[in-house]
Amino acid sequence: MNIFRISADLLHLASFFILIFKMKATKSCKGISFKTQLMYTLVFTCRYLDLFHVLGMMITFNFAHITGLTLYNTFMKILFLAASYYIVYLMRTELKSTSDDARDTFVLWHILAPCAVLALIFNAQFTILEILWTFSIYLEAVAVMPQLMLLIETGEADSLSSHYMFAVGGYRALYLVNWVYRYATEPYYSNWIAWIAGFVQTALFGDFFYYYFVKIMSGDAALKLPT
């Protein structure tokens, strides 16, 4: 555990609260891609299946392998799962009438199928849990695509949406730094699957980051994309 990893997780956690706050405050999910949020629930569901194992150990009072890091990870995993499912729930119940589904036109198979195939080929171990974990890593890298397409279609984003995108994009950039740090400090550390996927994921936000910083510099309220 290092400062880069902790700040990354806190930035990720902030992204959920920014989005939920925005949806509750404006009572609208306009400009938010349901498909991207749905992909995030799938990402965390496939990635955090080890929760059952950890929670199983806890309720059987088998604390031998429970460390502080395990508790931190378990707490955050439950938070991330709850927040991402809550967002999808909000978008399909209370805020359904304000959904932007008409413009949320990204074809999900274009990311689901390649990630599934890649996870079956490039993985650390050919086991169900490891393949699902790898699938979640690949899927998270491209899960923002529907949201980016919607942002391009809209041509602009209000400031909360742009802060949300900055947080959700920035957290993985901090993970890249965390991986460099761990590679440099831990003798047998290698995480090339997550590194490559994380690099692609951060690169996908590159264009957005550019316009986000331009907006910050120029003091504009809303993020403007070139028409």
Binding site: R5, D9, H12, R47, D50, L69, N73, M76, K77, F80, A124, Q125, W133, Y175, N178, Y188, Y189, S190, N191, A194
Partner: peptide
Amino acid sequence: AAVHRDHDEL
């Protein structure tokens, strides 16, 4: 040994 690293990250 290629210790199968446990996923200790989120």
